[in-house]
């Protein structure tokens, strides 16, 4: 660690790998199959997925950073407890900030912000990476894994909202009706044609959490079919 320290570049090939690997080859959801529980629960709307992703990226990046900074001072007997305190503190900060910044989405996400504490990705990265790597690399690893999680969440949220509700970004200021009849009566009076394909009737199954399980399964299938590195040869 000491010999390497002087040569470590800010964005060398290793650092870039830390950021990009979790997006494909080592995706926390589709490859490691971690954090699936929250991916099922919060992906009914794109906006919810985006807010949840930002929260997880923040918690992961800073939990990794803090854990890495204190890694030489933490007694091994209470290592896990210290990690949990770091995660819980950061999650509570996110919860308080969200309550002040956007109360409606805080109500929508309800317990799932608090449940980031139990998200296996966070604890997994702290144990596997941050407790034995430098702060800057740990920070990048946190952002990378958070992005890998967020990308899947947003893809699933996109499909579920588009075909389950016919809208995109509902609940946010840029909410729009894409396909089918507008569900919003206030706008319905102004624009009776709705979006494109006004014959489309919303698919109720996509509003149910179980549909994200199918969607994640399909994503895993597509990814494994295209990425030779992920084919299990053993």
């Amino acid at each position: 660690m000491t010999t390497e320290k002087e040569k470590t570049p800010l964005f060398g090939p290793k650092e870039r790998r830390l950021l990009w690997d979790p997006l494909n080859d080592n995706n926390p959801i589709t490859v490691q199959v971690l954090g699936v529980c929250s991916a099922l629960a919060v992906t009914s709307l794109v906006y919810k997925s985006v807010v949840m992703s930002i929260a997880v990226i923040f918690v992961l990046a800073f939990a990794n950073l803090v854990t890495s900074l204190i890694r030489n001072y933490v007694p091994s007997q209470v290592r896990m407890i210290a990690q949990l305190v770091v995660i819980a503190t950061l999650v509570t900060i996110v919860e308080l900030a969200l309550k002040a910044a956007n109360y409606a989405i805080y109500k929508e996400l309800s317990v799932f912000i608090g449940l980031i504490i139990t998200n296996c990705i966070v604890m997994g990265r702290l144990e596997a990476f941050a407790s034995s790597n430098s702060p800057w690399r740990s920070f990048l690893d946190g952002i990378g894994n958070g992005l890998g999680y967020g990308v899947i969440l947003i893809i699933v949220g996109f499909v579920r909202e588009l075909f389950g509700k016919g809208t995109l970004f509902a609940g946010s200021p840029i909410q729009m009706n894409i396909i089918g009849k507008s569900n919003d009566l206030v706008n319905y009076w102004i624009d009776t044609s709705g979006g494109a394909m006004s014959w489309y009737s919303n698919n109720g199954m996509l509003a149910l959490p179980v549909s994200s399980l199918f969607l994640i399964g399909i994503l895993i299938w597509v990814q494994r079919a295209r990425n030779k590195k992920l084919v299990d040869v053993s």
């Binding site: 001072y73 933490v74 209470v78 305190v85 819980a88 503190t89 509570t92």
Partner: peptide
Amino acid sequence: FTIIMTIVAGLILSGM
């Protein structure tokens, strides 16, 4: 270590 950690986390959260 535990006592200091608890105090720091507590102060940050109550301030927030």
